[in-house]
Every structure is written in C-alpha cells, then in structure tokens.
C-alpha cells in the first residue's frame, strides 16, 4: 500500500517520502531507498532485505541506529500492552456471550467507551505523574504506565463496550433462532448449539476489536510515554523517518494478517467439527440422496 501510495501521488517519490523543506538531499534518499527504479523494484528490494533481517537504519529518530534494533526494543512493550488490554476485552466478550452482563453495567461501559483514548490516556498519565513525580521513568513507574495504558486502551473509544455489546447481540440473535428453541425443548445445551454457528462471526468481531487496540496503541503509547511500536511509529511519522514507518506499518500489517489467519483457522475448525458426524456411509451418496 505504501509503495502504491508513493507512486500514486504526483511528484518525485523521494520528495514525497521526505519533502525538501524537511530533508536535504533527495537524490541520496532516492538511491538509499531504491526509489529511482520504480515501485516494483523498490518493493521487491525492500521485501528481500526485510526477509534477511535488514530494515535499514533510522535517519532522523535515532540517527544511524538499525531499525531492527529499535523494533526489537519496542516490540515487547507493544505486545504486552495489546495482550493486557485484550484480556478484559475477551473476558467481557465471553461473559456477554453467556448473557451474564447486566444491562446497567453494559450502559456504564458504553458511557466509558464514549471517551476518546487521548483524554483517558491524559488522565492516566496525570495519575502516574502525580504518584511518581520525578521517578516517572523508573522501572516500577514503567510497569504502572504499561498497566494504565492497557486499561485505557481496553476502555477508550468503545473497545470493551463494543466487544460486550457485539458479543451479546450476536449470541442473543442466535439464541432467538427457532432451531435453538427446539434444541432447548429437546434438552440440549443452548451454547453448544449456538457456538458453532456464530463462531466465525464472533472470531471476526474479536479480530476487529484487537485491530482496534493495535490502532489505539499509537495514541496511548505516545501520551503515556511507553516505549512501544506505536510511539516509535508516531515519532517516525512526525520526523519523516521513512524506514521506521515502513517497518512499523509492515509489522502491524503482519499482526493483522496473523489475526486473519487465526480467524480462518477457527472457521476451518468449526467446519471440520460440524462435519465430524457419524456419517454412516460416504458423503458421495449423501449428495445423491439430497438431489
């Protein structure tokens, strides 16, 4: 997408990556990033270098430092933040799916979710700063900032409330289906009847929520000064550090692809589980019967 954007926008690719007003020497920049030989060459070169573990060097955020080193430092914090934020989100979604979230609590969550991440993050930052003062960057304060960030990320911009409301609505609608009512009359478990039918959609919803967390991590990390990938991406964007932006965006895209793969695996498993019936004879004859 980045490669396409750079060449889709009118103008010299090197000037687009870093305007002459900001960076001097666009010719050097073009050579350094293989921008002078078209988008395909640029993309293939970058990918082959990335596969060899070479993402280039930072040239404005931390001059000369390999991007891979910066990413290695930032990655654990971002992953911890997203993981910690997604735990209550998953828990909320499961409880809502079971229909155990009181309506009033859901309304409270929705009210909290209406707050933007930047405001909640500011509140969290103020609390941490008031508590730790000059020790803001001690290891204990860093842990607290990470936990506060996870809390903010989990609540702000409707992350938790959307997960709760989405799961409740999905399962409630399915529980209203006639086959579930009949299964209930046959004494079967309602959840085991509904779950295979909504598992795919539910996995899709939860994937969207985790993507939302990844998106929100940028603001939360930047406000709370958490040395994560989001903060790195933000500073790199401000300072026009193309290498870091490209690497961070690629990482987020890979995370997204991984989530998509997980969702696909859930769907495949459900389909396999549904087919795992005591098929008394082969499937070929089944289709003949149906016909």
């Amino acid at each position: 997408m980045v490669a396409w954007l750079i060449w889709a926008i009118p103008g010299d690719p090197a000037s687009i990556i870093c305007p002459p007003e900001v960076c001097a020497g666009t010719t050097g920049l073009a050579e350094r990033w293989n921008l002078d030989r078209g988008p395909i060459h640029f993309y293939l070169t970058w990918v082959s270098q990335a596969l060899n573990g070479d993402l280039g060097n930072s040239w404005r955020v931390q001059q000369g430092v390999p991007v891979v080193s910066l990413m290695k430092l930032a990655l654990p914090n971002t992953l911890s933040l997203i993981l910690l934020a997604s735990l209550p989100l998953m828990l909320g979604a499961v409880v809502a799916a079971l229909g155990r979230i009181p309506r009033k609590l859901e309304q409270v969550l929705q009210l909290g979710g209406a707050l933007p991440a930047v405001v909640l993050a500011l509140v969290a930052a103020a609390v941490v700063q008031l508590h730790f003062g000059a020790d803001m960057y001690s290891s204990q304060a860093c842990t607290i900032r990470l936990l506060a960030g996870a809390l903010v990320l989990g609540i702000a911009d409707g992350a938790l409330s959307s997960a709760v409301t989405g799961s409740r609505t999905l399962f409630q609608r399915e529980r209203g289906q006639r086959y579930v009512q009949v299964a209930r009359l046959r004494g079967e478990n309602v959840l085991s009847n509904t779950l295979p039918n909504v598992a795919g959609a539910w996995a899709g919803q939860l994937r969207a929520r985790i993507l939302h967390l990844m998106s929100g991590a940028v603001i939360v990390e930047a406000v709370l000064r958490i040395d994560g990938l989001g903060d790195l991406l933000w500073r790199a964007t401000l300072l026009q550090d193309f290498g870091i932006v490209l690497a961070a965006a690629t990482f987020f895209a890979l995370m997204s692809a991984l989530l998509l793969l997980l969702q696909a695996l859930v769907e495949v498993f459900v389909a396999w589980h549904s087919r795992r019936a005591p098929s008394l004879v082969s499937r070929q004859s089944t289709t003949r019967v149906a016909a």
Binding site: M1, L5, I9, I16, M214, L233, W234, Q240, V245, A253
Partner: peptide
C-alpha cells in the same frame, strides 16, 4: 475484509507521512 484488516491509525500515519505538505 481487506479494509477492515488495516489498523486505521497506522494507515492514517502512513498517509500523513506520504502526503505532500500542501495536501
């Protein structure tokens, strides 16, 4: 599916980076 798989803030920052200053 395609657009939904993109973290929005990341896309916004990438677009902000590559957009010419006057845009």
């Amino acid at each position: 599916e395609l657009v939904g798989a993109l973290p929005r803030m990341v896309v916004i920052l990438v677009v902000a980076l590559v957009l010419p200053l006057d845009w």
